[in-house]
Design a protein around this nucleic acid. Structure first.
Length: 221
DNA sequence: TTCCGGCGCC
DNA sequence: GGCGCTGGAA
C-alpha cells in the first residue's frame, strides 16, 4: 500500500513542492521574501541568481559584505537601496541570534516580534519567512489573497491580523494546507485575478465571482 | 489613507 | 513616460 505524504511536508528540499519559486534553501527563501516586496517574481529571480554568483545568498556572507555589492546584485527588483539595507539588518539579527538555524528554530512568536522590529519587515514579509523559510504554522495574509476573496464575494475583515485569523480559522491547521492555499491563491492572481483588468475568462472562479457577474451585467447595459 | 520606492514592461 | 508589482511606514 502506498504511503501518503505527510501534511507537514518539509518545504525546503528537492522532494517538496516548489512553494516559493522553487527555492530549496531556507535562507534564500528569507532573502527573497524581502526582495519580492512590491515586485514581480521574475525580477527577483535575476536578483538571487546574481547573489548566488557573488556568493551572497547566505546571511553570514551578507553581514560581511558591503552595501553596494548587494545593491549591484539586486537592481532588478527595484527599491534596491532600501532593500539592501533591509537585508543587512536581517543578516545582523540572524547572526546576532547565533546563525540561521538558531534564529529560525525558536518559538514563532519570538521570531515574529523580532522580525517586526526590523525596519522594512512588516507582517507579510515576516509571516512569509516564518511559514516558508521556517516551517512555522502562520499564514502570510497577503492583500492579494484578500482581493481574490473579496471579488468572489467573501466578507473579508479589514486589517492584516484580522484577515490572517480569518484565513487561519478556515484552513486545516497544517503546513501543507497553509502553503497550498497561499501558493494557489497567488497563482490565481498571477494568471487571472490581477489588480486592474482581471482576465476573468481564464479564471476557474468566474462562475461564482460577484465581480465577474457585475462586469457581465454592465457590459449588457 | 497616503506617500515612498525603482524596476520592467506597455 | 505611465503603470503595476507576492509592502512598509508615517
Amino acid at each position: 500500500m502506498k504511503v501518503l505524504p505527510s501534511f507537514d511536508w518539509y518545504p525546503c528540499d528537492a522532494h517538496s513542492p516548489k512553494w516559493w519559486g522553487g527555492l530549496e534553501s531556507p535562507e534564500e527563501v528569507a532573502i527573497t521574501a524581502v526582495l519580492v516586496q512590491q515586485t514581480r517574481w521574475e525580477n527577483v529571480r535575476k536578483a538571487y541568481e546574481n547573489l548566488r554568483v557573488a556568493r551572497l545568498n547566505r546571511f553570514v556572507a551578507i553581514k560581511k559584505s558591503s552595501l553596494c555589492s548587494i545593491k549591484s546584485c539586486i537592481k532588478s527588483v527595484g527599491m534596491y537601496a532600501s532593500k539592501s539595507k533591509r537585508l543587512k539588518e536581517l543578516a545582523d539579527a540572524v547572526i546576532k541570534a547565533g546563525g540561521w538555524k538558531t534564529f529560525i528554530n525558536r518559538d514563532a512568536r519570538e521570531i515574529r516580534t523580532e522580525l517586526l522590529r526590523l525596519n522594512g519587515i512588516g507582517y507579510e514579509t515576516a509571516d512569509s519567512i516564518l511559514l516558508f523559510a521556517g516551517n512555522h504554522l502562520i499564514f502570510p495574509a497577503s492583500r492579494l489573497i484578500a482581493r481574490v476573496l473579496e471579488r468572489i464575494g467573501f466578507n473579508v475583515p479589514k486589517g492584516y491580523e484580522a484577515f490572517r485569523r480569518f484565513v487561519e480559522l478556515g484552513l486545516p491547521r497544517d503546513l501543507f494546507s497553509y502553503k497550498l492555499f497561499y501558493a494557489s491563491s497567488l497563482v490565481t492572481t498571477k494568471v487571472a485575478c490581477h489588480s486592474s483588468e482581471p482576465e476573468c475568462q481564464k479564471c476557474y472562479l468566474s462562475n461564482i465571482c460577484r465581480t465577474f457577474a457585475y462586469k457581465q451585467a454592465s457590459n449588457i447595459l
